[in-house]
């Protein structure tokens, strides 16, 4: 355990944490605005969410309880190693249960369980700039944000409809925050967009490679962009979760065998387990129990 002593609490030195906290405060003060920060090298590759890790490291205290999810699950490689990292460098309590966590670091999902005041959701963001796909020049995108010139966002949605007959964007679906800044919610499914709106929890976004932090403070308006005649809609699923029977949740497809057998289950594993513990059962579970 000697090597622990060589790390500062939560890995980053206090100087760096202060710098990142200043960026976070600024981001909270200007909801949806991307604040540049001096991103540090972390002992993991960029694709692993170094932006989110730096944000978490800067806000983490010894009393915090940390949950880490990737695609909604606590047990994927990425989630497991980030959780282990913070256990090692901060010795904080960890959990898989949404309601017990004070800080939840995520890639791809917002938990199904409604977050509450005092909780902070930290997103790992690969590409923070929503205008990037049509305007590669950074100087120009900054100007567009400053002058609130967001026509391009609708050009993208127009293209979507022209090509597919409907808005086919399902991930990283752009939103307008507090009536001002257009923001990329990172690669979460648009299913989760409504959860960002008026959330009681603080939402922080960290992009390591692109060196940007942005935020949605609690109780902030978050509106998904759309057209009057093609209004924003979330994905809907034909069947409830095969394991817990939940409806109105985001489902992942699971392949059961090589004969085309498959089922749809909650992507939020904690939510699914919680429901099953409370006695809910989907058709796969009911069938298994009947067989036993």
């Amino acid at each position: 355990m000697n090597d622990l002593a060589t790390y500062n609490f939560a890995y980053l030195d206090e100087q760096t944490k202060r710098m990142i906290r200043r960026a976070i405060l600024k981001a909270i003060a200007i909801p949806g605005y991307q604040v540049p920060f001096a991103s540090r090298e972390m002992p993991m590759p960029y694709g692993w969410g170094t932006g989110g890790v730096q944000v978490t490291a800067s806000i983490l205290g010894p009393e915090d309880v940390l949950k880490v999810i990737d695609q909604g699950a606590d047990d994927t490689t990425n989630a497991v190693s980030i959780r282990a990292f913070f256990q090692k460098v901060a010795n904080v309590a960890v959990t898989t249960r949404t309601k017990e966590a004070t800080i939840i670091q995520t890639r791809h999902r917002i938990p199904e369980e409604k977050l509450s005041e005092g909780q902070t959701l930290v997103y790992q963001v690969p590409i923070p700039e929503p205008l990037r796909f049509l305007e590669p020049r950074e100087t120009e995108t900054r100007k567009m944000h400053a002058l609130e010139e967001y026509g391009l966002m609708h050009v993208k949605l127009y293209e979507d409809i022209a090509r597919n007959g409907h808005i086919a964007t399902t991930y990283a679906y752009p939103v307008k925050v507090e009536g001002r800044y257009v923001m990329d919610p990172s690669p979460t499914p648009k299913f989760d967009n409504p959860k960002m709106h008026m959330s009681e929890a603080l939402q922080l976004f960290g992009a390591g490679r692109e060196k940007r932090i942005y935020a949605v403070p609690p109780y902030t308006d978050v509106v998904s962009l759309d057209f009057d005649d093609h209004p924003f809609e979330i994905q809907s699923f034909d069947k409830p979760c095969a394991l817990c029977g939940a409806e109105d949740v985001y489902l992942d497809e699971v392949i059961l065998d090589d004969k085309g057998g498959r089922m749809f289950v909650c992507s939020d594993t904690d939510h699914c387990e919680d429901r099953r513990a409370c006695g809910h059962a989907g058709h796969m579970l009911a069938r298994k129990e009947a067989a036993e």
């Binding site: 010139e149 026509g151 609708h154 050009v155 127009y158 759309d226 057209f227 009057d228 005649d229 093609h230």
Partner: peptide, 13 residues
């Protein structure tokens, strides 16, 4: 259509 969208037109049709 870009200019129309830039000035706030929000009806695809």
């Amino acid at each position: 259509g870009e200019r129309l969208m830039a000035v706030g037109d929000r009806h695809y049709g």
